[in-house]
């Protein structure tokens, strides 16, 4: 039976009896690219530390690669690569040297460490820059170095904490594409902690949403972004005229800003809408089945203590 990546059972962690970071978390994570959302601050870093065996749970259990990190932390850490959220790089060494050094601390022999460091830096897209001191790097380059050091020892699981932090849109795209590649081509599972739900929808195939320390939902992304049976139509002008025309055709039309929402009762709806738009010679900007979004998870409940 293939081993699940991470399995927790009623995992709970309280600090000093007052702050509950994780509460009764039971979840099974399968290999792939997994998004970890919602847990901010305490919950997220607690979960990571417990997985790495740096913290013991208050109660409940956790297994990573079917190993208990509280009993065998070294075994788990040898197979996990961690990319922290915050600044973690010394300014006065070069990336090549730093990643090589960390490779050795992961247990790689000297030559292997050098070679794998060089390869890891190539895979993340750092070329001549790697011989310059890290202090002079841009944020994007620093994020890549952090990712390279997580890869150098060939882990089976990457833990990436806010990997697109501080990156501009182009940098974010590049990082997300890289993560996607790692998850699909390299065959390494990735857990991405992010507060940007759009990103998560883009590159992850499953999701764990934690809120207030408790599991909100754990599911495949495809389940959460399923198409609904509503069609969204947008024309860049003449929205009112179109709404009228569609209503006359017997379709129920709801209005949301610039969009017209029409229930998709049958495929004929597509044709009728198209006909109406063409008849009115309106510029058709969008026609699409509405999909659900991960963000909806957080919009449903009402909590005062947020």
């Amino acid at each position: 039976m293939p081993v699940s990546l991470i399995v927790t059972d009623a995992l709970t962690k309280t600090y000093g009896g007052r702050v509950t970071a994780l509460s009764d978390l039971t979840v099974t994570v399968e290999p792939g690219v997994i998004g970890l959302v919602g847990a901010n601050g305490a919950g997220k870093s607690t979960f990571i530390k417990i997985m790495l065996g740096l913290l013991a749970p208050s109660s409940g259990s956790v297994r990573v690669f079917d190993i208990d990190p509280t009993v065998n932390p070294d075994q788990v850490r040898a197979r996990v690569g961690y990319m922290p959220e915050h600044d973690s790089l010394p300014p006065d060494v070069s990336a090549a040297e730093f990643v090589t050094h960390l490779g050795r601390i992961s247990g790689l022999p000297r030559t292997a460490a050098r070679e794998r460091a060089s390869e890891a830096l190539r895979h993340v897209g750092l070329y001549e820059e790697r011989y310059r001191q890290i202090g002079g790097y841009s944020t994007g380059m620093k994020q890549r170095v952090k990712l390279a050091q997580a890869l150098v020892h060939d882990p089976d699981l990457l833990l990436l904490d806010e990997p697109t932090n501080g990156l501009d849109p182009a940098g974010r795209d590049a990082m997300l594409a890289l993560i996607h590649r790692i998850g699909t081509e390299f065959g390494i599972s990735v857990v991405v902690c992010s507060h940007l739900l759009g990103e998560v929808e883009r590159i992850c195939d499953s999701l764990i949403a934690i809120e207030g320390g408790r599991l909100l939902r754990a599911d495949r992304i495809s389940e959460m972004t399923a198409a609904s049976d509503v069609l969204a139509v947008e024309v860049s002008e003449g929205t009112d005229a179109l709404a009228e025309a569609l209503t006359k055709l017997g379709l129920t039309v709801a209005r949301e800003d610039r969009l017209l929402l029409v229930p998709l009762e049958s495929d004929a709806a597509y044709d009728r809408i198209l006909q109406a738009v063409a008849d009115l010679e309106l510029p058709l900007h969008r026609l699409d089945q509405r999909r659900h979004h991960v963000a909806e998870l957080f919009a449903t409940k009402e909590t005062a203590d947020v």
Binding site: P283, H285, L287
Partner: peptide, 20 residues
């Protein structure tokens, strides 16, 4: 954006999705 609906209808093709 004006031509597309016309062309699709003209060819008898059902348009299912248009997304910028």
């Amino acid at each position: 954006t004006r031509a597309l609906p016309r062309i699709a209808l003209g060819e008898g093709i059902r348009l299912r999705k248009l997304l910028p």
